[in-house]
Design a protein around this nucleic acid. Sequence first.
DNA 1: CTCAATGTTCGATGTTCGTGAAACATCGAA
DNA 2: TTCGATGTTTCACGAACATCGAACATTGAG
Lengths: 120, 120
Amino acid sequence: MVAMKQARHPAPNEITLIDVMGALNDPIRVGLVRVLADDREHGWGELRAPVAKSTLSHHLRVLRDAGVTRTRQEGTRCFVELRRDDLDARFPGLLNAVLGAAHRDDVGAHVGLADDSPSA
Amino acid sequence: MVAMKQARHPAPNEITLIDVMGALNDPIRVGLVRVLADDREHGWGELRAPVAKSTLSHHLRVLRDAGVTRTRQEGTRCFVELRRDDLDARFPGLLNAVLGAAHRDDVGAHVGLADDSPSA
DNA sequence: CTCAATGTTCGATGTTCGTGAAACATCGAA
DNA sequence: TTCGATGTTTCACGAACATCGAACATTGAG
């Protein structure tokens, strides 16, 4: 369902290092984080990843459960954004270090935004 | 064998972000990294972790294969140390961010050094 | 109401991972 | 050489994970 009762996001202090490391231990999820690094909210539909719909849904769920992203529903559509502030507050420097490293190695390069995306 | 022909460590530029994230995606391995964060070489024997010998050997292998640590053999004993310089050069800030986060949450607290360790 | 769009959840499948016991290899000492 | 200490490797097993297709639920439009 596009609208579960309410996806539960971990509180800032419930975010654990191991969970974050686990969430960022997959090229596709790192790619998603890179896309979200513009600190803007993006709709599912804009996201382009070389996996099935259900798999993408799964990855987005892992990121959300780990506290890396926040999900919002509007009607039948969902939007994601990076929880940069919460992550920075809890693990200073971690997100930037990962983003920098991911950029250098071009991790998750196959993940991106649709051509007609408002951010493209 | 205490002395394999020569453990192959990845070259600095062969270290990948995903491998490092994967290596640091386990409390015991994070604990080991914390112990090694004093930038000194430690013998296997000093290491205390709540796992079997073979499991510890496995974890140290994962860390080595990921390029996080370096292993050296002297006679029948092995020594490990953090590859801090290589990691910092390749992924600036990542190691420090992880160490800081691990310290805050006390990740890998059950890993330590023997009481009679020269560093204890 | 009926349809189409958008995600989620549910198997099912194959892979990777953490773990320990046991067997093995190497080195140093007696 | 025989023994003990120190690690490594192999094997087996259960758990966790990535992936996909199909069925399902919810919402918005016609």
